[in-house]
């Protein structure tokens, strides 16, 4: 089909060269100037995300594995999918106690695990790269250790957020961290549990992705 390729590009080139276009400057000041001070950022993130049914669990560096376990136990969650090879995963497996929900490692390729993933997993836990104040969004980059479906298929997604990893805008997060130098297989912003308003504009949560999103804030 390279015939079409050349025809299309040739036509575009001829069209543009006959009438070149001078675009106006792109002035990013409107994004650069969006700023929130210290504590305001997390407050705003919380307010915006709660408005779309996100839940928050406040905890500390020391206590978070125990707090997560207690939270899930209280919810009656049967099991929790986690990435055993991450630092967070190591802490979960070493500090998890008997009698709580079962810890299920995402250890193999999805092909060997699909049925259980879709049918038998209640919750999944992932880390985040931070959150964005402007829109109330978590930044999630799946990795081989924390695969893409962990934050999508289980009915509940728990996301670990370090309270000092906050950005003002999406633009700031990507420019400061030079995302353009190397994008991962998949990068995500997640701003709440899955939702839809396709039936007469009535909001309903949990259509295809997680029904619940719990942000675990670690201070």
């Amino acid at each position: 089909m390279s015939e079409s390729r050349n025809a299309i590009l040739g036509k575009l080139r001829a069209g543009r060269d006959a009438h070149p276009l001078t675009p106006p400057e792109s002035d990013f000041a409107v994004l650069r100037n969006k700023r929130w001070e210290g504590a305001e950022r997390l407050e705003r993130i919380r307010r915006m995300m709660e408005a779309v049914h996100t839940e928050f669990l406040e905890t500390t560096e020391v206590d978070w594995p125990a707090d997560v376990q207690a939270f899930l136990k209280a919810q009656g969650t049967r099991n929790l999918l986690f990435g055993p090879a991450t630092e967070a995963g190591a802490r979960l497996s070493s500090e998890w106690t008997e009698g709580g929900p079962e810890l299920v490692p995402y250890a193999d390729r999805v092909e060997t695990f699909k049925e259980r993933l879709f049918d038998g997993i209640d919750a999944g836990i992932t880390t985040t790269l931070g959150a964005i104040a402007d829109t109330g969004s978590l930044i999630v980059w799946p990795t081989p250790e924390e695969p893409r479906l962990m934050s999508l298929v289980p009915h509940m997604h728990l996301a670990l957020l370090r309270a000092d990893a906050l950005y003002d805008t999406f633009w700031q997060a990507m420019t400061e961290n030079r995302w353009a130098d190397g994008m991962p297989t998949n990068a995500l912003l997640i701003s709440g549990p899955s939702k839809t308003a396709d039936i007469e504009q009535t909001l309903a949560y949990g259509v295809h992705g997680p029904k619940r999103l719990v942000v675990v804030v670690i201070r």
Partner: peptide
């Protein structure tokens, strides 16, 4: 489009499954 500051998901895809990745 829908008067949301952002949609629930912004999904940025840059490659198929790489060596060692478990899904995608």
């Amino acid at each position: 489009a829908t008067a949301q500051p952002i949609t629930t998901y912004v999904n940025m895809i840059s490659s198929p499954r790489k060596e060692g990745e478990k899904d995608g």
